[in-house]
């Protein structure tokens, strides 16, 4: 099977996407760099945060949604910085109003300011309330297969286990747990958080993840736009390798690729 975007789409909440890379929009030096990095990544879904408007600030400044218009990108509002189910639900209700009823959202409820580990009991509580209220919930979670399954059963449209901690760039620390989550999931599984460089994204895709969501790995690179392009290729390459099916590993008795007979001088 050829990994053609028409044959191999990512379907989220009933909508079809050809890109399997989702990117954040924070930590860039300016909006021009944000836009250039998003373009280079090929991402069709971009995350945004919801924050209080700066009272008294020059209101003629361009806004993020003018740089990344919702007509062109699927805007995925997140609940970054929320430490309770109530705050997360309030934030996403504001996001839905802000985005004219758009109901695809990224839920994350954090448990600890030092590590940014998710608080899974609050995450489950918020997921339940949001699904009941008609939201399509993409949910950031720990790499715990039971929690991932519970979130799917609640009705989340995508489960997004961490590869390692948010902003750590430590890569995929527990590929075995991710494989169990992927094997048991009936909804798309995206790796969210922890990717540091292109090979991490490729490994996530080779494991069978349906996509990767990343932010700091691109924004904190020395050249964010170049890294965005590298991540695009890595996700595509990893997906193609997964679909192609890798060769089995052999410790020895490897067979050479060239013929073993008809050597000269025999």
């Amino acid at each position: 099977m050829k990994p053609n975007e028409n044959l191999d789409p990512l379907i989220i909440g009933g909508k079809t996407y050809s890109s399997r890379l989702l990117v954040g929009t924070g930590k860039y030096k300016d909006f021009a760099e944000t836009r250039a990095a998003v373009e280079a990544s090929g991402a069709q879904i971009v995350t945004v945060a919801i924050r209080r408007t700066n009272i008294g600030q020059d209101s003629n400044q361009p806004s993020l949604l003018e740089v990344l218009p919702p007509t062109r990108f699927t805007i995925l509002p997140n609940t970054a910085g929320c430490y309770s189910a109530d705050d997360a639900v309030r934030t996403l209700k504001l996001a839905r109003e802000l985005l004219d009823g758009h109901n695809l959202v990224k839920l994350e409820v954090l448990g600890d300011k030092e590590t940014l580990f998710p608080n899974m009991s609050e995450t489950l509580k918020a997921a339940e309330a949001l699904v009941k209220d008609g939201f399509k919930v993409m949910v950031y979670c720990s790499d715990d297969p039971i929690a991932a399954k519970q979130l799917e059963e609640i009705g989340c449209v995508v489960v997004m286990p961490l590869a390692s901690l948010i902003g750590s760039g430590m890569g995929i620390l527990n590929p075995w747990n991710l494989q169990i989550i992927i094997a048991n999931a009936k909804v798309p599984v995206l790796v969210d958080a922890g990717v540091g460089t292109a090979s991490d994204a490729a490994i996530a895709m080779e494991l069978g993840c349906d996509g990767v969501l990343m932010s700091t790995a691109i924004a904190a690179a020395q050249n964010p736009v170049m890294m965005a392009g590298a991540m695009k290729k890595a996700v595509e390459a990893g997906r193609a390798a997964f679909l192609a099916g890798r060769m089995p590993k052999k410790i020895y008795q490897a067979s050479p690729s060239s013929p073993t007979g008809d050597l000269i001088g025999k």
């Binding site: 929009t25 209080r52 993020l64 970054a80 504001l94 802000l98």
Partner: peptide
């Protein structure tokens, strides 16, 4: 009152 906007975020 809370008045919010979308800003860059991950």
């Amino acid at each position: 009152l809370e008045i919010v906007v979308a800003v860059g975020g991950g």
